[in-house]
Design a protein around this nucleic acid. Sequence first.
RNA 1: GCCCUGGUAGUGUAGUGGCCUAUCAUGAAGCCCUGUCGAGGCUUCGACUCGGAUUCGAAUUCCGGCCAGGGCGCCA
Length: 606
Amino acid sequence: MRRTNTCGELRSKDIGKKVCLQGWVRFSRDHGGVAFIDLADRYGITQIVFDPEDIPDGTDANSLSNTMRSFTRESAVSVNGIVRKRVEGTDDARNPTGEVEVLITAAELLNKSRSPPFELGDQKEGVLPNEDTRMRYRYLDLRRTEVAHAIETRSRFIHLVRQYMEKNSFLEIETPILARSTPEGARDYIVPSRIHPGTFYALPQSPQLFKQMLMIGSMDRYYQVARCFRDEDSRKDRQPEFTQIDMEMSFVDEKDIQDMIEGLVAHVWKGLYGKEIKTPFMRIGYKEAMETYGSDKPDLRYGLKFISLTDTVKDAPYEIFQRIIKAGGIVAGINLKADTAGERIGRNDVDRYIGQAKKFGLGGLTWMRCKDGKLDSNITKYFTPEILDAIKQKMGAEEGDLLFLIAGPWKSTYEGGGALRKKLAEDLDLVPKDEMQFLWLVDCPMFEIDPVSGKHDAFHHPFVLPENDLNDKYVGGACFDLCLNGNELGSGSLRIHNPELQREVFRKIGMDDEKIEADFGFFIEALGYGAPPHGGIALGVDRFISILLGKDTIREVIAFPKNKKAVSLLDGSPEKVDDSKLEELQIMTLAIDGMNFEDLENPDEE
RNA sequence: GCCCUGGUAGUGUAGUGGCCUAUCAUGAAGCCCUGUCGAGGCUUCGACUCGGAUUCGAAUUCCGGCCAGGGCGCCA
């Protein structure tokens, strides 16, 4: 018996056909005479019927019904039969195959299933098992329509990307998984070398150096569906291993790269949804994004913008603001309009948000409510009527509006404000679910400078092309992030192609020449052989798909994800290996059962 | 490393000190049933994450561990 159709395929036009379906028994309903099986595969569900009043010639009804009785839930079975129209009035409009059913003539149990640990049918809300149970039995979870659909969408997405990249003359090139460990950045996953005991490869955090060397090697348009590895604690949008659409182009400027990505997103959109997407995407500068939305990946689907009040309140006799502004800090406000927000937040809620604000790293939270045409609050007595009026003007405050004011050092205050803005929008249900707001975050600084130590860190990474002299007070970087609905989807930049400039940037972030030579000497050397001007970007596939599908976590779009502690509940990795394997690698572990590494370091402590 | 939330039959849940030999649903096993579609009816089976403490008495309170999730740090 060979499968002739999938379980999602048969329609009225197939009535009368002899078919063979193979799939899994999702539900079965035996009425004591007539009996049904919902046969499922990843394409859909088809109803199989055994009808005592319609036994086709040559069918052994007895043995058939015995076989059907052995079909436990989720068993793999094969069914032969004839497609027929369902009895009048028993169509199932919810199911695309719901007008027909297969009148069974023969059946075979291909592989019996144990009783599944949870139910795989399309469930009503709230009956899904905990995620750890789903992950322990991920192969069963994958049979569920919702999960299967996510995995299918991901496949189509990747296919569309390849289609577009090929059309645009990109070469798909694989870069090494076993590579050199580089300093800075995330922690590496390391792999011991047997041939060279005591040495290690690192799994790539990204193919950054390799793709740049591909440009030097004349592969002027490269892309890869690249698996990347980072040994850092996970989050709902961060896994130890994840996938990026990694690309790099030579002889381009920033706009060339952005155009290419916009074209890619448009192509994918058309392919997935059959719709056009509006390009170019909006551009917003880093400074403006921070000062308006309190985020370097702002969610533009809702308002709640910050407005600077630093100048407005600089002369107010309110000591807290005075002190902050004198120290170079900022004051900014957010207007919660009466109709959508202000009137829904009571005095107790305000206190709750003041508590929240502290969790977000804000020193505090000042509030004012517009009442009888005036701003009113517990602190208005510290402000002159003129200044209160100026605040009201600047914030566009109208009757019933609630103002939240934040104050403090520029970065931490806007960041905290951004977290507060997000919380407010979620609490007040101001986030449209089906909207997709892409944007380019541009005009980023080259370095992040610690305000206390003055230490420079690369804002993106040290391969970004600086836009002006490294000794200038402010150095911009030719980098840009693609954001979607408050998430960073990808980060791109023009790269340094001048070896001396590359060296200088490394020095600027605190590396000495010896370290630079040891870690990046080979790369700087490569830049010295006519490296072309180049740049590129990497897009996070897992994040992209999970946002498109409205999933809360990227685990929903990864076939076999790891849990929060980087453990695969399915195969139990990571796990110890045999001592013989360690011996071969000349590795001893300090992690011994029942012994704490800390105790070894401090044997005298109790 | 830190903070927060949760952990009750296979699965989802109710239960905030005695009324718990723990609720309901689903499941599994068995029986009945000729048009269901998460079929239905009847019967049966099956659980308080672990350790310690408080108490006459703990699923329930407290402490610690383990497990899962969310967040901070971290993620150039």
